[in-house]
Nucleic acid binder design. Structure first.
Lengths: 380, 380
DNA sequence: CTGTTAGCGCGTTCAG
DNA sequence: CTGAACGCGCTAACAG
């Protein structure tokens, strides 16, 4: 627990000015190699760590990254945050967590965005599943503030975005059911206001089309991503006349699939015997339910990781531009919410689509082995 | 998206000095009520938000709270962090998340503590399940740095601590099994190096004692809190000669109970028919497994909330003391890792023990109704 | 009750 | 290649 040292201390110990020390620490050129070496040694010996606070104040840029997540009740959030935290841990940045609870949601999601912006604490924001606040995030981006979105975007894409390849994932899932011989395959959609729901639906349609099977409107129901809506949809679907009833259901989320499981359990409907079921997300508990759920795995951790990587590159680039434009104290730019520092429309926003993978378990009729022992690999 | 204003701007608009504005913002006394009113109005109108960065630098205290969590693979972490985030959201503080991934763990958990301390970014730390790094946290506390622990402490208690009443929880669980008529009740312990494991064991023993039942060493096995060790323990217990085999198992964590479920499933052992099972934690997925798990519910969200509350009170108190002691620029105290600002041994460290509650589900033999529809209430 | 004066620790400019 | 000087936005001591 060494005594906290400042740059001045190091400068004194090295016999140089603090300016030089600062230059070394920021990897500036124009420093004598010997001096640089010596300073680095002392910095290491003394265990010197610069104050992020002061650096932020002086340099105008902070070393903090904001991560905005909705309520932790969504089961994928922990996985995503895990990827984020681990990635940030490997950088010189720190992670500031902003979460929307029910109260902040009431007051309007814009509030928290304004708060983030006005405190000027973070250098950029990674917004996870922004949902309703997505439009605020977009505004941020248009004002030149570094922002990246995970797993929820508007159409057309306006903001750098990381997500899963929802259409392919859905396509694979339905293909699998088709390969098992199913022909009447229902789909419980997520809310259609989300692009990911529409993409999953598109994948579902595509797979059916390829098999020459028409999309039956009665077999497609819009849910709300949660268990309750899945249960309702199951009830509707399984109350259809026998000849119209689906033999398989592709749910747009694992939680909705749980709703199907619940209804089937109540009604004594055997899954997968009488009804095959596939979910989407591969949240940890889907390996635990009975029957264990076949589902499309989203690479949540990797999404978090890539999100941070992209955010950092954007921040760096925006620093670069600021540096080039600057003449004298042009830092007033920043106070104006960094307005129009660059033309965001220059290049099309970055979009990264990560591959999904189908996790086959018992719920669609395949034989399952030792499900519980697979807990580790699934939930990590 | 109003233009970012500084205290000086407000001072100019209000026709007073920035000092006065600062005083109003920090709720200092000695300000004319009218002036205060006027300043507050302007602050609100202009949407002024002070810079936490600058305030931290100047005042020597930051408005950031560090939260140290182990890997997100532990299923209760999200719940705890949720409580933490929500509580911090209601204060003027921000949440900085430090997480231990496998790499940081390798390099020694002390590193991250040193890092936290030397960056001097946060005003205090709430450490969740510190495990091996617990001793580092204790050292922090002894140096006068505000620290609170959640759910893992050393014996004797050295640091302010929030946790569940493990002994009572275990006692209740075993009592329940006894009430159901079980007499040969096994216990799969958590690692005995943790106080919580020892307390749960104590509750187990206490319940048996009250019924005049001796504690059989063969029925007590130490696990590692995870699923694999639970499976191993189940195998050992259920391989006992028929007359020594337990009719019920009380597992020290839900994950270990999952291991029991897995082994039982493999072996075709009916739960609860041939074996009753109770877990500990009430993590969300325990409502989803089949049979649904009876378990002792820890109030994770509340633990997070109380943790922050206690941490804030400690920070405030330490600021107070610093203020009283200070003569001139005595801020050097802080640079010395805030060493010995107060006598930590003055009062016994605060310990808050929150009540648990038994969640009765199918795994111990009670009739279960509509398990899936209870997902919401359990996982929130 | 209020304003003036010094910094907090660092980044950046400008003149050597 | 180097150092002195200034300022980031705010708080705290000291004198009115």
């Amino acid at each position: 627990m060494a005594r906290k040292r400042t740059i001045d201390d190091i400068a004194r110990l090295a016999g140089v000015s603090k300016t030089t020390v600062s230059r070394v620490l920021n990897n500036k050129p124009d420093v004598d190699p010997n001096t640089r070496e010596r300073i680095l040694r002392i910095v290491k010996e003394e265990g010197f760590v610069p104050s992020a606070t002061a650096a932020g104040l002086a340099g105008g840029r902070s070393h903090l990254l904001g991560v905005l997540v909705p309520s932790f009740t969504w089961p994928m959030i922990p996985d995503i945050v895990c990827g984020i935290a681990e990635t940030i841990g490997n950088t010189a940045y720190e992670l500031v967590l902003y979460s929307l609870n029910d109260k902040t949601r009431e007051n309007g999601e814009g509030d928290i965005i304004d708060h983030i912006l006005s405190t000027n604490l973070v250098a950029g924001i990674l917004a996870v599943l922004p949902g309703q606040s997505s439009k605020f995030v977009i505004r941020l981006h248009q004002h030149g503030f570094p922002v990246v979105l995970i797993d929820d975007q508007d159409d057309p894409p306006l903001v750098p975005w990381i997500g899963a390849d929802n259409q392919c994932g859905a396509y694979d899932a339905v293909k699998h059911l088709l390969a098992l011989g199913h022909r009447r395959i229902a789909h419980i959609q997520g809310p259609m206001k989300y692009v990911c729901s529409r993409e999953r639906y598109e994948g579902y349609c595509q797979a059916l089309r390829e098999h020459g099977i028409p999309v039956e409107p009665t077999l497609v129901i819009e849910g709300a991503f949660d268990t309750a809506s899945g249960r309702d949809a199951a009830q509707t679907l399984l109350s259809l006349p026998e000849d119209q009833r689906p033999t398989a259901i592709f749910a747009g989320s694992d939680l909705m699939a749980y709703g199907v499981l619940a209804f089937a359990e109540e009604q004594g409907i055997d899954i997968p015997g009488e009804l095959a079921l596939v979910g989407f997300d591969a949240i940890g508990s889907s390996a635990l339910v009975r029957p264990a759920l076949t589902t499309v795995k989203q690479p949540f951790q990797e999404m978090g990781q890539r999100g941070i990587e992209v955010l950092l590159s954007i921040i760096e680039q925006s620093d670069q531009q600021r540096f080039n434009v600057r003449s004298g104290y042009a830092r007033d730019f920043m106070r104006l919410s960094r307005a129009n520092v660059d033309e965001p429309a220059n290049a099309p926003p970055l979009r990264i689509r990560l591959a999904t993978s189908l996790v086959v378990r018992a719920s669609c009729g395949m034989r399952q082995r030792s499900p519980f022992s697979s807990i580790k690999s699934v939930s990590r």
